[in-house]
């Protein structure tokens, strides 16, 4: 784990875009979540999924979260 952290720090320039894309994805999902009136299932559940499940959380929300979308 120590090694992984130092590796991450040393190569920040390489990993930065990857992390940035993931953050943008989560933020977009959250913005969309707050804007929509109804979701499939409780809103707070989707908020947790988006925040804590990396990458797959926002994608799952975009595909299955919104009512009337599918």
């Amino acid at each position: 784990m120590q090694d992984a952290m130092t590796m991450l720090q040393e190569n920040l320039a390489i990993f930065a875009p990857l992390i940035a894309v993931q953050i943008i994805l989560s933020v977009l999902a959250l913005v969309s979540l707050f804007r929509t009136d109804e979701t499939n299932g409780p809103k707070w559940m989707w908020a947790l999924i988006i925040l804590f499940i990396n990458t797959l959380g926002p994608i799952a929300y975009f595909i299955f979260g919104r009512r009337g979308d599918v």
Binding site: V21, L28, F62
Partner: peptide, 30 residues
């Protein structure tokens, strides 16, 4: 419904995961 934003972002992720893991494979194994 944000398709214009999230689909391209997901494709970017899909496309960069393999070059990155391939490059860092020795370090990851270590």
């Amino acid at each position: 419904n944000f398709k214009w934003m999230w689909v391209p972002l997901v494709f970017i992720l899909l496309c960069i995961v393999d070059p990155l893991t391939t490059y860092y494979l020795p370090q990851i194994l270590e």
